[in-house]
Write a protein that binds this DNA or RNA. Structure first.
Lengths: 212, 212
DNA sequence: GAATGACTAACGAACGTTAGGTAAAAACTG
DNA sequence: CAGTTTTTACCTAACGTTCGTTAGTCATTC
């Protein structure tokens, strides 16, 4: 009976989320006012409070959506077929693809992961960091078991891997001309594998950087 | 008779800078109010405006001091003796040492380098990023010329190097139990050299991530 | 006639900043 | 070197603005 397209019902909500993504990713949480968000969305203030509890709720829901997108991509790569090196390549390639498609989302995510501990709304940053860490670590542990990788414990290697990946996404965030192609993703993993394999020094490891 | 200690002349200014470092590094620029800063320093508000033009001036002067400390350390390592691998080790070891000694400073620096473009007071972030980038790149270019390194252009390799270094400093910022020892610094450079050397793929490079 | 989705208008609190004043030390002057 | 002026280092008290938030109202739709 009713229109079978409730997709376009929350037009105002979508506009608010888009405006919020744009502003939050560029200016941060405290640097963005609710007045700027509603202006960008072309609605009035009470409309925002109709769809969202408050500013923090808006930020949290926005962030959770975007972060889930990234996690799902990584998860898909982790559970994909092939050896661990191929899966590592897919992890980076997927993240790079997201950064190319939706650089605002990636900037928002990096902002949260790398911001000072008490900045912005209180969300469990360490949990988020660990979630992503664990996914990548699983692949690296597989690689160590199959002797595709060596040269350190899984935690140290994961930290290096994420460092390389994130620094490139950060470069893309800062300079949008930067192109993060799948070829670069492959090259970085080759780099990583070589470093983890041919190292002829005693293994070094951090004291549980993101352990459980 | 009177206490002959004029060393404590700018006592209030120092207290303000210390309080500001503590708060800014933990909560960010917008997340910290002038009232919190003066409370932490145990002075009144006009005292802050006596020593600093305004909040932005306070932040800028604080940041510039701390960032210079880091740059000077890197510079010293860049200009030190030995092959480029030894110098790369000293760069990381120096940064790690600073992170161990003064984690607030490092957190403040990382915060500025990695925050979204329009957050906080307007300071030329790309210039700062480039300054540090150039210093490291010089050593890596030397390494490429002397065949101590290979496997990519100097810019790509520098980006990887900084990614590995920064991710570890970030880990320290998030979890202060993390120990960033000189041994770990050495291990990371070994990793880096192996990755840059034994890679058997065509060289890949980004489109000028932090070129001039 | 009850939700839904929007509006105008205002709220108190917190923000960065400043006007205006004071006690003591430092610098100058006859 | 005594007397005067200036500067230093702080204070109390308030300013105007912006912040996030909400009470109250009103069409439109089901």
């Amino acid at each position: 009976m009713a229109v079978p397209e409730p997709a376009t019902t929350n037009e105002a909500e979508t506009k608010l989320l888009n405006s919020a993504l744009n502003l939050f990713s560029q200016r941060g949480y405290e640097g963005t006012s609710i007045r700027e968000i509603i202006e960008g969305a072309g609605v009035t203030r009470p409309v925002l409070y109709y769809y969202f509890e408050n500013k923090e709720d808006l930020f949290r829901r926005l962030f959770e959506t975007k972060f889930s997108e990234l996690l799902e991509r990584i998860e898909a790569a982790v559970e994909s077929d092939g050896d661990s090196i191929a899966r590592l390549k897919r992890i980076i390639a997927g993240a790079f693809e997201l950064a190319e498609q939706n650089s605002d989302s990636v900037r928002l995510i990096l902002q949260v992961l790398f911001s000072p501990p008490q900045q912005g709304p209180s969300l469990d940053r360490n949990r988020l960091i660990r979630q992503r860490f664990k996914l990548v670590e699983r692949v690296i542990r597989d690689g160590l078991e199959n002797k595709e990788l060596s040269g350190g414990d899984s935690q140290s290697l994961t930290l290096v891997f994420l460092g390389v990946m994130d620094m490139h996404m950060m470069a893309k965030s800062n300079r949008s001309e930067t192109r993060l192609s799948p070829e670069i993703a492959d090259g970085l993993v080759q780099f990583f594998v070589a470093g983890a394999k041919y190292r002829d020094v005693p293994e070094t490891s951090l004291v549980s950087p993101y352990a459980e």
